[in-house]
Computed example of a mutant assay.
Amino acid sequence: METTETETEPGTATSTVVSRAIVCEFLGTLLLVFFAVGSAVLAGEYIGTFGIALAFGFTMLALAYALGPVSGCHINPAVTLGMLLARRMALRTAIEYWIAQVVGAIVGSALLFLVAKQVPGLQTHGAFGTNGWGDRSAVHLNLGGAFVAEIVMTFLFVFVVLAVTHNIALFGFNGVAIGMALATVHLIGIPLDGTSVNPARSIGPALFAGGAALTQLWLFIVAPLIGGAIAAVVHQITHPPNEES
């Protein structure tokens, strides 16, 4: 689930692979938002926190195996930042991934919004699967608490991604660990702030929810990126680049 592409001239075989990878990042983020965030928007009252957490984990698990061989299935700017800082991808490719992820999240949110509008009585503004603190938190977590929680939760997720893709001996099983890690952080984080750990996942729904979701959005961009960066630094210590196993 890692990408090994570096800078290439347009028209080369590697450039074609990169283009496919960008499409996968767009598609993967779109599907993660539509199905996982959609589980909260469309079925939250029926499946509860546990069901929503499993929806995120299972969606990530399925996409890891479907898209991982092509793009690494980052579908998360924090993961891409971790890969960049771990020197597993080029800056240009990371920027292309970030753009694809954000656009994919926005399109996925638009499709989810269209479906939600067809459900009588369903609120499509306000919550809409967004993240928040204070009155928008189930436990009324304050800003500082939400900031720390997002850093720690994203650290766990990105660290797991970096660790299980570091050792080729784990190939074939890394998707399971990654899916379980995402489900775990959602089990903990949904009552706290709705769980972001993914700036793209937060940006898309917030654009359609508007209001407080937009004014609080900055935290769910900044904190996950900090968590991803810390994970990359710690991973370099626990899993040195020249380590074979």
Rank of each mutant, 00 (worst) to 15 (best):
residue 205 P to H: 01
residue 169 A to E: 12
residue 187 L to D: 01
residue 184 T to V: 14
residue 187 L to N: 01
residue 218 W to F: 08
residue 161 V to G: 08
residue 244 E to G: 13
residue 85 L to P: 14
residue 16 T to K: 15
residue 51 G to M: 02
residue 178 I to D: 09
residue 31 L to G: 09
residue 75 I to F: 05
residue 213 A to W: 02
residue 49 T to M: 02
residue 36 A to Y: 07
residue 17 V to P: 15
residue 195 T to F: 01
residue 123 Q to S: 14
residue 9 E to G: 09
residue 47 I to C: 04
residue 234 V to M: 02
residue 188 I to T: 02
residue 31 L to D: 10
residue 51 G to H: 05
residue 234 V to R: 00
residue 65 Y to W: 07
residue 143 L to F: 13
residue 114 L to C: 12
residue 208 F to I: 04
residue 76 N to H: 09
residue 13 A to T: 12
residue 127 A to M: 15
residue 149 A to T: 14
residue 126 G to P: 07
residue 20 R to C: 10
residue 147 F to P: 15
residue 175 G to C: 07
residue 25 E to F: 03
residue 160 V to R: 00
residue 134 G to A: 11
residue 16 T to L: 13
residue 145 G to F: 05
residue 41 V to E: 00
residue 160 V to K: 00
residue 134 G to I: 06
residue 182 L to C: 04
residue 215 T to A: 01
residue 227 G to W: 01
residue 181 A to L: 03
residue 141 L to N: 12
residue 204 G to Y: 02
residue 68 G to H: 05
residue 72 G to V: 03
residue 224 P to I: 00
residue 127 A to T: 15
residue 117 K to R: 14
residue 218 W to H: 09
residue 174 N to G: 15
residue 181 A to K: 02
residue 81 L to E: 03
residue 187 L to Y: 07
residue 120 P to T: 11
residue 108 G to S: 05
residue 85 L to T: 02
residue 144 G to Q: 05
residue 136 R to W: 14
residue 228 G to P: 14
residue 219 L to Q: 09
residue 210 G to H: 06
residue 67 L to F: 13
residue 197 V to P: 05
residue 196 S to G: 06
residue 232 A to K: 09
residue 192 L to K: 05
residue 16 T to R: 15
residue 40 A to G: 12
residue 188 I to H: 00
residue 97 Y to D: 02
residue 240 P to W: 04
residue 116 A to V: 03
residue 220 F to V: 08
residue 60 M to E: 11
residue 17 V to C: 13
residue 194 G to N: 10
residue 198 N to P: 12
residue 188 I to E: 00
residue 83 M to T: 13
residue 42 L to S: 05
residue 139 V to N: 10
residue 224 P to E: 06
residue 146 A to C: 06
residue 124 T to W: 08
residue 103 V to G: 04
